[in-house]
């Protein structure tokens, strides 16, 4: 058994360290888009249902869809930031800490990805109910919308922390 573990470790170490660093942007873009898509799916289906009888809520509630879309944009920002850094670091020949830096990028991408995915799901599920409450009583829209903005703020926090941790990696 220890033999097998040793073999695995050698195999893992034989992989170029830049690969692990590149997983960071991959996770960040895919998880962010998963969250955004989940959000739009939830909000969109409820919003379309609510629009059938109450057409005037349509334009206002597109903001909920935009908020979900913004989650995907956070993912894009984080990913572009990471990609440029990885390229720069991989070309640097005298970086003694390249291992640490690459794992830092992986952690940063994963953190932003999972954080934004949660924010996307939260905004999405809320968005549908914001549409319904708007259809019931239009004065409720702004009040419910603030709740949604706070859910969106979770994604911004994940993005900020992701970028700061990547910059200092």
């Amino acid at each position: 058994m220890p033999n097998l573990i040793d073999e695995c470790m050698t195999w893992i170490e034989s992989i170029d360290i830049v690969f692990w660093g590149s997983l960071g942007p991959a996770f960040s873009i895919s998880l962010c888009i998963l969250g955004a898509a989940w959000g739009i799916w939830s909000t969109g289906s409820t919003l379309i249902g609510a629009c059938i009888r109450k057409r005037e809520i349509w334009v206002k509630n597109l903001i909920s869809i935009l908020l979900c879309e913004a989650i995907a944009i956070y993912g894009v920002i984080e990913t572009i930031f990471l990609i440029t850094h990885i390229k720069y670091q991989a070309d640097e020949e005298y970086n003694l800490n390249i291992r640490r830096t690459m794992y830092g990028y992986l952690a940063s991408g994963l953190g932003t990805g999972i954080g934004c995915a949660s924010a996307g799901a939260a905004v999405g599920i809320l968005g549908g109910y914001v549409a319904i409450s708007d259809a019931w009583n239009r004065h409720l829209f702004i009040k419910c919308f603030i709740v949604e903005v706070f859910a969106e703020a979770i994604g911004v926090m994940a993005l900020i922390v992701g970028i700061v941790s990547a910059a200092s990696a």
């Binding site: 799916w41 939830s42 969109g44 409820t46 379309i48 249902g49 609510a50 319904i132 259809a135 019931w136």
Partner: peptide, 13 residues
């Protein structure tokens, strides 16, 4: 919401 959101929107309105 993904599966029944549409009908929930309809029935609640």
């Amino acid at each position: 919401a993904n599966e029944f959101g549409f009908l929930e929107g309809v029935v609640k309105t």
